[in-house]
Design a protein around this nucleic acid. Structure first.
Lengths: 196, 196, 196, 196
DNA sequence: AATGAATGAGATTTCATTCAT
DNA sequence: TATGAATGAAATCTCATTCAT
């Protein structure tokens, strides 16, 4: 990759990162190209040099977000740890990410409105890939007999929902800091799984 | 209340109900007065006869939604049942409501963007009232020694998050129907609380 | 005129008086039927019982305003006074009316935009009738040789303009009260006419 | 200033000039962005590129109008002429401006309805600056003993009012052309001041 | 590669007007 | 007579998008 190409790639990424942020703050319709642009000291016009249209930009921002999340969780999957520990790490990572980045998964709501069927398909695919990492951990735990035999899909979604909701109620000014909250939530969620 | 007044009240409620629905489908900015109006065969102008502006309409729709939820949960609070049963009923009620109405709590995200400080305050108040009903049940369970001694605030939010997420993944075409899903989720969530 | 008819006439007049007021405060487009109605504790709908449409209402309000002004000035015309005194009275009356009613002649600007050709004609006619009263006084003064031989039309308009402007700058909190201002302006304007 | 900047400035000025015109024809509420835009073959959207909103546009148009008027009158102030001549020039200039531009000072009525307190303050300031130029001329005349000792504020306002009214009654088809009217009015107004 | 300028579609909002009661 | 309800046209304003430079 030439210097120029790298510069372009960097710029695109800057835009995408900002897009993820604004998107999670304002939602699809509340997000304006103008705002994304001005946050990185660009003009609207320039954004259109890098992305076909708003839809394309926001779509790609979701791909990036999901791609990274998947990388993170898969890195954990292949570590040499007890399954409980791996699941705990995945959960803590997820929650911490949400709290630090304050951006996230909320907008992934009602994809059909914003994205084409194809795009929706792809996002659902990635979402599912991400969810599957959790499924695998749960499944492994069941097989190792450390987890009770639960309905994997339902429990996975309970876990995801409980974690994603944290942005709604966590307050900086509370007693617990971000890491403590993440650990606490994770521990309680493990109660659903761990055999007594 | 005269006939005319009742008619007016009914109309307002119709608009609000529709607003709740559209709002949860499209988000604040994605919701247009036009769409709300046309769904109940009204014109934009008529909606403005009943509500000052979009903001007012959507604010009141949230009040209505929360008010009803609180009524529902408080009705359960005072029944003569075991605390576990009451909590289960509250959870199932919540989930079923979400799945039947397909409308919900998602938009209650980032209130500051849409509502005035006062309005936000009021909504947070009501949200908290709703949450407190769950807190009371959890607290009662702890005191009766049927639940372990958990951090009430955190567990309450885990429960709410897990429940609200259901709109994201529940599919009509899945194996379980709405009631089964609601029961299933509730049971798993009780695992966090119930002492073994 | 029956009681009922008198009641109706009274109501119409109330509306017209209010219309004159609002009109002079807000201008044609800034005046809403709603505002006129609510100031006399009526509803929009009721106003339409008495007047065909906004245009009709505002047109008639102008007729009333001008009609009264003409009555006032003509009453002076036929009094047994020196011409200078009569003109002074007419001027003072005009200015005091403006300052007390705070409503007036400003909106009579650009008639063509708001009124039909016929209506415009009628208003111009009345305006002219009003102006003619001043013309007559000026003319009489010239003939009696107390006034210099001026261009009547121009001087009349100087006088009207100077008087009407008073609503733009007179302030309650100033040194002079309404009557003093009216007298002062009148005296200065007479300088244009009186022979030395 | 670059070429582009000059072009932009020019465009803004075009819009403002048109705004002044339409405003004086139609009043604040009667003036639509659409009309301003279409008169200079622009679209509404473009106008909004240059001005934040209607209020901003009309406010700035008033600033421009007043600014120019002040420049004009102050240029006269410092010429080497008799005070009577200067005042006459100022008056003639004012009237001619009104008659040629057909735009003017009428809308400066009821500022509070249209402008913020700050904006109103600024406009009143400028209006006052303009008025003060006349005050200075009147005052100088009094001191030089060519004018009688009049109440400066009142006489200034008589003069302004008489002049501004001209747009209400001057007709192209009359005997006198614009300059003749201007001279005539000015001469009569000087009668108020000049000692015999 | 970047941007200033322009546009047009669509959203919110206001309001004169109508009408059934 | 009076009014609550409803409507639709028109106005303000926003913003994704395009394009010439």
């Amino acid at each position: 990759m030439s210097l120029r190409e790298r510069k372009t790639a960097k710029k695109k990424e800057d835009i995408l990162r900002t897009a993820v942020l604004v998107l999670s703050e304002k939602g699809y319709h509340g997000t304006t190209i103008e705002e994304i642009a001005s946050r990185i000291l660009m003009t609207k016009g320039s954004v259109y040099y890098y992305f076909k249209d708003k839809q394309d930009l926001l779509y790609q921002s979701q791909l990036m977000l999901l791609g990274r999340s998947i990388e993170n969780v898969e890195a954990i999957l292949f570590q040499d740890l007890l399954v409980i520990e791996k699941l705990r790490m995945a959960m803590i990572g997820h929650i911490e990410y949400l709290l630090w980045e304050r951006s996230g998964f909320e907008m992934m709501v009602k994809l059909e409105q914003f994205f084409s069927a194809q795009q929706k398909e792809k996002i659902l695919q990635l979402r599912d890939d991400y969810g599957k990492a959790f499924d695998q951990l749960i499944q492994a735990g069941i097989e190792e007999n450390v987890f009770g035999s639960v309905d994997v899909k339902i429990v996975r979604n309970i876990i995801l929902g409980a974690m994603n909701w944290v942005t709604q109620w966590y307050s900086e000014s509370g007693k617990k800091d971000k890491t403590e909250i993440a650990e606490s939530i994770s521990d309680y969620l493990l109660h659903i799984l761990i055999k007594k």
